[in-house]
Design a protein around this nucleic acid. Structure first.
Lengths: 215, 215
DNA sequence: GTCTATAATCCGATAGAC
DNA sequence: GTCTATCGGATTATAGAC
């Protein structure tokens, strides 16, 4: 039989994934499992403790999606698979996507939980690895790989976030293609002739800061 | 003296802007104003009614920021000012930014409130106007202006959203420059030589292959 | 328009029996 | 590890006096 703690956490994830964070309470969680609320305190110290574990589980799931992209045989393939994995995670686990990107205050935390700092760094590192190897393979222009990876991340998150928030009038079944064609414009660039240069580092505003640590 | 409804709404905005949405309640709101909770029901039907009004006010403020960009003398200037206005709004009114982009469920709504649909369309239209006139002026490549505007919006939102969520290790005073240099990569494009074309519509949809579903 | 009083419900967390 | 019972608090919302 599964450990009680595992079952509690799994049920909590299910509830939040189904109904969001707002109606979540330990009493409800206990009722869903079939026990009473005080029993939960044998496995978790508080409601916040449960939520932190849920956030950690969300990041773990997200990481699992991304990681499959490494099965691709070429840098280009791995990059494309990473994009598909990002979209797949957002569409198949929208609540997790929401929980992960939620402002800490909305979960009742005072600051970014440590469960989020590591995975956030890992996500950036993963994307940066994809970007760097694509640069070496000539699929991407030579550039600051950290800055480019951040841009790819931000653009992906922006598109998905607007979509999940209902602000993009795109049907669900068309969204993966929509995402892909939108990201394509990041590859080709949207600027006119004056912005078409092979070496972005010669641009006046192309200065990026290089800090690595999240405070 | 100001109308009661105006003062209630203003105080509600102040509270949410100061402390976020999570601790907001009608009792607290009433106490802040100096009345009792039932008095509020003479001016608003419910808590949701108050929150809808706050969301509407947030969109109104956002629109005011964006609108100032129209003072620029050229398409290129107006586009740049729009970007600066977007960043200024996000940094000066982060709670409004949060409220505006919050999932409806987190505000206690079941669906996207009508107060959000109109302004969301307006934002996209505003950006599309900037994009289109920049295309006509040759600052932007000829392309689908709706798609490009969406990309600009998504990229802007993505960068700001990651920053406000604490996921980007960028000091506050460096963020506007960081934003600008990141958006610059959207202009130049990040793709290698094969993606450097004048007419994006001639591109094969080649970066991604077929999508597979994760369970 | 504002008040008091109150209904009805929910919450997190703890004490102590078993 | 789970229970019952309970503390102490919160919330939205309504009824009716003034």
């Amino acid at each position: 039989m599964t450990e009680p703690r595992t079952r509690i956490l799994g049920t909590a994830c299910d509830m939040i994934l189904a109904d969001g964070i707002e109606g979540f309470s330990l009493r409800r969680l206990a009722r869903c499992i079939g026990v009473t609320a005080p029993a939960l305190y044998k496995h978790f110290d508080s409601k916040e403790d449960v939520l932190r574990a849920v956030v950690a589980e969300g990041y773990r799931t997200f990481g699992a999606y991304l990681y499959r992209a490494l099965e691709g045989p070429t840098p280009r393939e791995r990059f494309a698979l990473a994009g598909q994995a990002y979209v797949a995670f957002a569409m198949e686990q929208p609540r997790y996507y929401e929980v992960i990107h939620l402002s800490p205050a909305l979960l009742g935390f005072m600051e970014l939980p440590e469960e989020a700092v590591g995975p956030a760094c890992a996500t950036r590192q993963f994307l940066e690895d994809r970007v760097r190897e694509c640069m070496e393979a000539g699929v991407l222009k030579p550039d600051d790989s950290t800055a480019v990876a951040t841009m790819v991340w931000a653009a992906s998150h922006g598109i998905v976030s607007l979509y999940l928030g209902g602000l993009l009038p795109v049907p669900r079944d068309e969204f993966p293609a929509y995402f892909r064609s939108t990201i394509m414009r990041l590859f080709t660039g949207i600027g006119g002739p004056e912005f078409t240069v092979a070496d972005p580092s010669s641009l006046p505003a192309a200065v990026t800061s290089q800090r690595q640590t999240v405070t």
